Amino acid sequence: MKQLVRAFIAVFLVSMGLLYILNELNSSEGYSGGNTLTIYNWGDYIDPDLIEKFEKQSGLKVIYQTFDSNEAMMTKIKQGGTTFDIAVPSEYAIAKMKEEDLLIPIDHTQLPNLPFINSRFMDLSFDPKNEYSIPYFWGTVGIVYNSEMLGGKKLSSWADLWDKDLRNQILLVDGAREVMGMGLNSLHYSLNDTDKNHLLEAKEKLDTLTPNVKAIVGDEIKMLIANEEAAVGVVWSGDAAEIMWENEKLDYVVPKEGSNLWFDNMVIPKTAKNINGAHQFMNFILDPKNAAQNAEYVGYSTPNEKAMDFLPEDISSDKRFYPDPELTDKLEVYENLGKKMLAYYNELFLEFKMHSK
Rank of each mutant, 00 (worst) to 15 (best):
A95Y: 05
A230H: 00
L250N: 00
A230I: 02
D314Q: 08
Y344W: 15
A10R: 15
L4H: 04
G30C: 06
M282L: 11
E24P: 00
I268R: 07
F8E: 00
D160H: 03
K249L: 09
D314Y: 11
V14W: 05
K76F: 00
L25D: 13
H355P: 00
I285L: 15
L331R: 02
E178C: 04
N212F: 09
G43C: 00
V234S: 02
I225M: 07
N336W: 06
G81W: 10
T302Y: 11
F12S: 10
L114E: 09
A295Q: 11
P128L: 11
M266K: 10
A231P: 03
E246C: 01
I315S: 07
G81S: 11
S119R: 13
V62A: 09
K98E: 15
L111R: 08
A343D: 15
I77C: 01
N118M: 06
A278F: 13
S69G: 09
N26P: 00
L60H: 08
Q79L: 12
L150R: 13
A95G: 08
L200F: 08
K319A: 12
I134P: 07
Q3S: 02
L191S: 06
E24G: 07
E55N: 12
I63P: 03
E335C: 02
K330T: 11
D107V: 14
S28E: 07
L114H: 06
F12C: 10
I134M: 12
A226Y: 02
P128H: 10
R167W: 00
F116C: 09
E347M: 15
L350D: 12
G80N: 05
G151T: 15
L37E: 12
